[in-house]
Write a protein that binds this DNA or RNA. Structure first.
Lengths: 204, 204
DNA sequence: TGTACATCAGTGAACGCGCGTTCACTGATGTAC
DNA sequence: TGTACATCAGTGAACGCGCGTTCACTGATGTAC
């Protein structure tokens, strides 16, 4: 695959990977174009053959993140079908799993400050992944008597906020904020309580 | 108060305020010691009369944030007493209110990457504010039959995560992630559902 | 198969910039007598 | 009240650094004939 001569062979992806590693290690602040180039074994100037600049490189990392994220969410959703409940909880777990397995992507997506509307491509992918969770929420809503059924988008926003909060506060080694619970349990139990509150699972 | 001569009079606080403004405007990344000094009308070198350096200045901003935060939370808690439920929901609202009213402090506290264990002073204040929420949760727990009562720390962690998630995703003008709901409603309704799930308020 | 040439994907030197930090300094303030 | 002196809180020049970006270049690759 890698020719390893004067021509790199796959520099573009190598740069994205280096960027992801750097972001994972040092946060979005710590990432510099120059160091990403160095890690890929290349001069900083070479980056400009593949990206417009620093921002563009981060945006590509985020794009790939949304791609993977969307696929994982979709897979989890499909996997829980035909049970609306199983599909939903599976999707919730996928959220956390993604954040843990792809921290660089996660940070590029949610903490780097790049806007999801930077390119239509990015916006589309972001929307697609959000749609999966919304779909799962919507399916579940159908099981709630219509007179006290919440809007699916609100339901979905609640879960997204919950998941994001758990990731930020407890899944990353946040500034001294670790709790005695592990993130999976925390999210699982929170969602459990929430679903009970909607009358979607039994009060035991 | 401000003498406005060669001697500033209240430079230390002026620097903190400038830092907070900068952080609010440009995020923790955008903050530079030099620009904070400039805004305070002073040479960068003057900063070193009052702080050990850049990090130390951010830490002081965070410290003041935790101070205010703790007081607001405590006030909200007291205000809801003697009803455990009122105290709790009041505390939850105070969280969001703080994030909106003091965005610079909030960012310095939770997004700047400075550790809460940087100084004992900071750790104490952070712990104190966390204790308020935990106390509110604990009070409420007492109303739950013991056999299905969750640990108060977990309960509290759920609410903290929820609140933080709402702030990060929907209260700040996050990268294109705005929802059709406003943050207050979102948090209020989420907590409502959650409390129903715990059997703390009636299923209507 | 061999040669000429176009295109591609890198190099390396240079740039201007703002950063955090240091240093010797000096003007302003407070205090002792 | 006035003077001498210590201390405090700033200045301004300088530093070394790494950054993002540009540019003319060149080595490697692909293609036409």
């Amino acid at each position: 695959m890698s020719k390893r001569g004067y021509h790199h062979g796959n520099l573009k992806q190598a740069l994205v990977d280096a960027a992801l590693d750097l972001i994972t290690e040092k946060g979005p602040t710590g990432f510099t174009l120059s160091e990403a180039a160095k890690r890929a074994g290349v001069t900083p100037a070479a980056v400009y053959r593949h990206f417009e600049g620093r921002e563009d490189l981060i945006a590509e990392a985020a794009r790939q993140g949304y791609q993977i994220f969307g696929e994982l969410m979709q897979f989890a959703y499909d996997n829980g079908q035909p049970s609306a409940l199983a599909a939903f909880t599976s999707t919730g777990r996928a959220y956390l799993a993604f954040a843990k397995k792809y921290p660089g992507h996660y940070i590029a997506m949610f903490e780097s400050g790049i806007s999801v509307n930077r390119t239509p491509d990015l916006a589309l992918l972001a929307d697609r992944s959000r749609a999966v969770l919304e779909r799962a929420a919507s399916d579940l809503c159908a099981h709630i008597p219509i007179e006290r059924r919440p809007p699916a988008t609100m339901f979905s926003a609640h879960i997204w906020a919950m998941s994001h909060g758990v990731v930020e506060l407890f899944a990353r080694n946040s500034p001294g904020m670790q709790s005695p619970f592990d993130p999976e349990d925390l999210l699982e139990s929170a969602i459990g309580v929430y679903l009970r509150g909607l009358g979607l699972i039994e009060m035991d």
